[in-house]
Design a protein around this nucleic acid. Structure first.
Length: 739
DNA sequence: GCGTAATAGATTTTT
DNA sequence: TCTATTACGC
């Protein structure tokens, strides 16, 4: 997210001179409430970081007196780096971070006020769900009839709105398990407290509860934090809003940056109303609009503006082109026959762009839903174009990392039942349902942690589990002692070996197993960067990211949501069809509001592009294995006709198909099966130079996506492989490794 | 207690 | 079409 102003980096005092007048106003209005409406590509991050540095440079505040909040770790990191760059020295002692990490930091100081100790554990979503299921089970809820994820979502929405179980009104609690959701929520919270655990939502909720119930604590923070900066204000939910208001209430020096047109997270509890209401919430607020866009060409800006103008209730901004070379190609709208042709079209254009010297890292394919990436991945593999999928499973969400973390957690907190439950039979120790049930019953009856219950249970087990469980419990004691003697890194490594956990993956023959062992090594390496185990556990829960596959020149594949805040020279926007984009679920659940949010998502997508935007729509798409006909997205009709260039093979292909009566069974709108289209030669890949191929027929090879297989044929740098776990495929040699 | 077969259900997911 | 969870047989 950089605003490419034509000024060299500098650490001098000229940082203000590098701003345009509106940016400068946003930076220099230091006192009182300020709302900065920052359109896409208008230098939002530059303004925020410069304002931060300006506060420090002018002596208005010490580093510890400014609170700067972001949503993502990435944004927080970037802000820290850029503030340091302006200051000319590393920025230390800042209250800068994500909402959640800042709240965690505060909550560690006040944990006892909400019934926790400062060593509380932050649960991941998996643990949250398991805990809730246990609570529901104990309450005698039929989990078939009332699935736990539904209640989890409800509890999270309540937490997003700052509602503790006590604050939820009975009127709101009618449609789940016959009005028992509130009671279950309360029971869930009570279990969390017993286990000294927090879920993500609790971090925010507990802190606002501390502020509400303890004015002296709030007054202390009010004195301490004199200036507040908030990024992406349009994405804040109610509890975040309360938290900010409480923190800002005495000095009112709060500066929020955001763009109502980029609010795309209502389904996660974000309230666009927060930004729309800012001037009412903070009387005499200064509103600054940043409208000079330094990112995109005029046609791209025109397309985005024309589209978003179809939304009602906007604060209203008009982006104007700020860069000198803002002339450019029209936005392309390509109509295609089906999703396969769409993938071929995108692949072909990327190849051609690469031949013309474009960097792959400057190209992105932005899709509405995760499953859409697959078709493109397969095509890119065939073409040998390196790519990375952004998003997906986070490092700490992987099973092996969560298992390893559970082993470490049980050392740090013996009462962490969820952690113990996770590892007690991983790897398999011969414990079954009955043994687990007895363990839980004993723990509940005696009011003791599961580990203690397990210890008492050992003698009464049959030989095999008795020995295995006994060894685990002894191990836990030994490893915990080792923490002080040998340090957490050594303990972690020996623990994974002695518990049999690494052996479990070494014995596993699935294609993912080697990668999992690698991830475990990475975990140990990362552990070495931390002083203590506790510090590491918090880091993994809140901050740890997955940045593999980021090296080299690769194009990016991601959802539109994941693309917010990023920019690329060339952006492909496939799948603009009714039902997919706008998504039918968004329309069903949100009605007109839902469509408006989808439109904002489209706006976000288009404004990611600096120079080229290629939108496409397919007449037929395979969804869950079935081919179904679709009609072009309404958003296509909302683009300015004079700024877009329509292209397409859809009509041509349709004519050709019409000549095939055996498969073509009627009007296209009613077709159930996908008709075969005669291959269009234009999409065929061009000839490439023939490098010597190192792979031989019959050789065993490994592919990151398809696993192990045997080479059956070699043609230039393309290799036919018969995969063990997948159909035979032709792949590029650069994707293959020797096992 | 564990491995395999049937079966339902499949947006978006900053922390 | 694929995946994740659940129901059975050994």
């Amino acid at each position: 997210m950089s605003a490419p102003l034509p000024t060299p980096p500098s650490s001098g005092d000229d940082y203000l001179a590098r701003l345009n007048p509106e940016q400068r106003e946003a930076v220099e209005t230091l006192d009182g409430p300020v709302l900065i409406l920052a359109g896409a590509g208008t230098g939002k991050t530059r303004v925020l970081t410069t304002r931060f540095a300006h506060l420090l440079k002018t002596g208005r505040a010490w580093p510890g007196q400014v609170l700067a909040v972001t949503f993502t770790n990435k944004a927080a990191r970037e802000m820290r780096e850029r503030v340091s760059a302006i200051l000319g020295q590393p920025a230390e002692g800042l209250w800068l971070g994500t909402f959640h990490s800042l709240c965690a930091r505060m909550l560690r100081r006040h944990a006892e006020l909400v019934g926790l100790t400062s060593a509380f554990t932050i649960l991941d979503t998996d643990d949250q769900m398991r805990l809730l299921k246990q609570v529901m089970d104990a309450a005698g809820i039929d989990l078939k009839r009332w699935p736990a994820p539904g209640l989890m979502a409800q509890i999270q929405r309540w937490k997003d709105r700052g509602l503790t179980a006590e604050r939820v009104t009975p009127a709101e609690d009618t449609d789940y398990a016959g009005g028992r959701a509130r009671a279950l929520y309360a029971a869930y919270q009570s279990r969390l407290r017993d286990l000294n655990c927090c879920d993500f939502g609790d971090l925010m909720l507990h802190m606002t509860e501390v502020f509400r119930g303890h004015p002296e604590v709030l007054a202390d923070w009010n004195r301490r934090l004199r200036y507040i900066l908030v990024d992406e204000y349009q994405d804040t939910n109610l509890v975040q809003y309360y938290w900010l208001r409480l923190l800002a209430q005495s000095h009112r020096n709060i500066c929020c940056v955001g763009d109502d047109d980029q609010s795309i997270y209502s389904w996660r509890g974000a309230e666009i109303e927060n930004i729309l209401r800012f001037e009412k919430d903070f009387p005499n607020a200064k509103v600054v609009r940043l409208e000079a866009n330094y990112r995109s060409t005029k046609p791209i800006l025109a397309a985005a503006a024309h589209l978003i103008a179809h939304n009602a209730g906007r604060l209203g901004k008009t982006l104007r082109a700020g860069r000198k070379d803002a002339e450019g190609d029209k936005v392309r709208v390509v109509s295609l026959w089906d999703s396969e042709e769409e993938a071929r079209m995108v692949g072909e254009r990327i190849e051609s762009a690469r031949r013309n010297g474009h960097k792959l890292a400057e190209i992105a394919i932005l899709v509405r839903a995760g499953f859409q990436t697959r078709a493109f991945e397969e095509r890119l593999i065939v073409l040998g174009l390196p790519y990375r999928v952004v998003g997906g499973l986070k490092f700490y969400e992987r099973a092996e990392i969560r298992d390893a973390m559970a082993y470490l957690r049980i050392l740090a907190q013996p009462a962490d039942d969820l952690a113990f439950e996770r590892i007690v039979n991983t790897p398999k120790r011969g414990l079954g349902e009955t043994a687990m049930r007895r363990m839980h019953e004993l723990a509940r009856a005696e009011g003791i942690p599961l580990v203690l219950a397990a210890e008492r249970l050992v003698p009464s087990l049959t030989a095999k589990p008795r020995q295995a469980l006994g060894a685990l419990l002894q191990g836990i004691g030994r490893w915990r002692e080792g923490l002080a003697k040998e340090g957490h890194v050594v303990v972690a490594a020996t623990l994974l070996d002695e518990s049999g956990y690494t052996d479990m993956w070494k014995a596993d023959k699935s294609p993912e197993a080697p990668g999992r062992l690698e991830n475990l090594k990475e975990l140990i390496r990362a552990l070495g960067e931390f002083e203590s185990l506790a510090g590491f556990l918090e880091h993994v829960a809140l901050v740890m990211e997955n940045d593999e596959n980021s090296e080299g020149d690769r194009l990016s594949l991601m959802t539109l949501h994941a693309a917010k805040g990023l920019e690329f020279d060339t952006v492909f926007l496939p799948g603009w069809e009714e039902g997919l984009f706008p998504h039918s679920r968004a329309m069903e659940e949100g009605g007109d509001k839902g469509v408006e949010e989808e439109r904002r998502l489209a706006y976000v997508g288009i404004t990611r592009a600096r120079r080229h935007a290629i939108i496409s729509t397919a007449a037929n798409r395979r969804i869950y294995g079935n081919w179904s006909a679709s009609i072009p997205s309404r958003f296509l009709d909302e683009l300015p006709p004079d700024q877009i260039q329509r292209e397409g093979s859809a009509s041509m292909a349709r004519a050709r198909v019409a000549e095939m009566p055996s498969v073509f069974t009627g009007p296209s709108g009613l077709m159930a099966r996908k008709p075969r289209v005669i291959e269009a030669g234009a999409w065929e890949a061009p000839v490439r130079p023939p490098p010597a191929n190192p792979f031989k027929v019959g050789e065993r090879v490994f592919h990151k996506k398809f696993g192990y297989g045997v080479v059956t044929a070699v043609d230039d740098n393309r290799v036919d492989v018969d995969f063990e776990k997948s159909d035979p495929k032709r792949v590029m040699d650069s994707f293959l490794e020797r096992p």
